[in-house]
Simulated scan of single mutants.
Amino acid sequence: MKNSDPSYLKHHFLIAMPHMADPNFVQTVTYLVEHNEQGAMGLVINRPNGLNLADVLEQLRPDDTPPILCRSLPIFSGGPVQTDRGFVLHKTGVQFQATLELGELALSTSQDVLFAIADGQGPEQYLIALGYAGWEAGQLEAELVDNAWLTCPADSHILFDLPYDQRLAAAAERLGVNLSLLTSQAGHA
């Protein structure tokens, strides 16, 4: 199968259902970077991890003082896999040492994107995460069948413009769903 297969959800949001049992994904919305026959990879976009860009830059360049602006740029918990690895999801147009083009978005994993953001030379819109969410072949499909997730096409406005604590409700609203009205109890007909 090709990645253009409509059953694959690349560039979609995964919206955790209220009964989500996995603590890594309770009340999260995840942007799917890739989804194909080999599995899926995504970044949780609404769970800051308590760090900011200045904290990360102090580790990368201990002799330099990061710009004050960096203290207000949150780092997100992108998922439970490789939590020490950084990912920057951003609009295309700016290339860095390790950038994967995803259509209108790109994913950069090299430190130069962080330095560019700190120096005011980075992409205009971005989300910085440590770690990612990963699914083996067939795993995400099984979770979808079990109603663990709702899905909808990704929206750059939700990704980059909304405060993180509004992203989950906004993604669900794209489907006409109010998550607070859904029960956390699973039912069977």
Rank of each mutant, 00 (worst) to 15 (best):
M1P: 06
P6S: 12
S7H: 09
S7Y: 04
S7V: 02
Y8W: 15
Y8R: 11
K10A: 14
K10L: 05
H11W: 02
H12C: 11
F13A: 06
I15L: 00
I15H: 01
H19I: 03
A21W: 02
P23W: 04
N24W: 07
F25G: 03
V29L: 00
T30F: 01
Y31M: 07
L32M: 08
L32K: 08
H35N: 05
N36C: 10
N36Q: 09
E37G: 03
A40H: 11
M41C: 06
G42M: 00
L43R: 00
R47D: 07
P48T: 11
P48C: 09
N49W: 01
G50K: 00
N52P: 09
A54G: 08
A54L: 06
D55M: 12
L57Q: 09
L57V: 10
E58V: 07
Q59T: 10
Q59W: 05
R61S: 13
D64E: 10
T65E: 03
P66A: 05
P66H: 04
I68G: 13
C70F: 08
C70P: 10
C70W: 04
C70I: 03
R71W: 08
R71V: 06
S72R: 13
L73H: 03
P74Q: 00
I75N: 02
G78Y: 01
G79P: 02
V81H: 05
Q82T: 09
R85H: 15
V88L: 01
V88N: 03
H90Q: 11
K91T: 15
F96G: 09
G103R: 01
G103E: 00
G103P: 01
E104P: 07
L107Y: 13
L107E: 09
S108G: 13
S110M: 04
D112F: 02
D112S: 12
V113L: 06
A118R: 02
Q121D: 11
G122R: 05
P123L: 06
E124K: 14
Y126Q: 09
G131L: 15
G134D: 11
Q139Y: 01
Q139T: 10
L140A: 13
E141M: 11
E141Q: 15
A142G: 11
A142Q: 14
A142L: 10
E143D: 14
L144S: 08
L144Q: 14
V145E: 14
V145Y: 04
D146G: 11
W149P: 03
C152E: 12
P153I: 01
H157K: 09
H157G: 08
I158G: 14
L159I: 15
D161W: 11
P163C: 06
P163K: 06
P163L: 06
Y164M: 07
D165N: 15
R167L: 07
A170T: 10
A171C: 08
A171V: 07
A171H: 15
R174M: 03
L175N: 14
V177K: 01
V177D: 00
N178M: 05
N178R: 10
S180D: 13
T183N: 15
S184R: 15
S184A: 14
S184H: 14
A186S: 12
A189K: 02
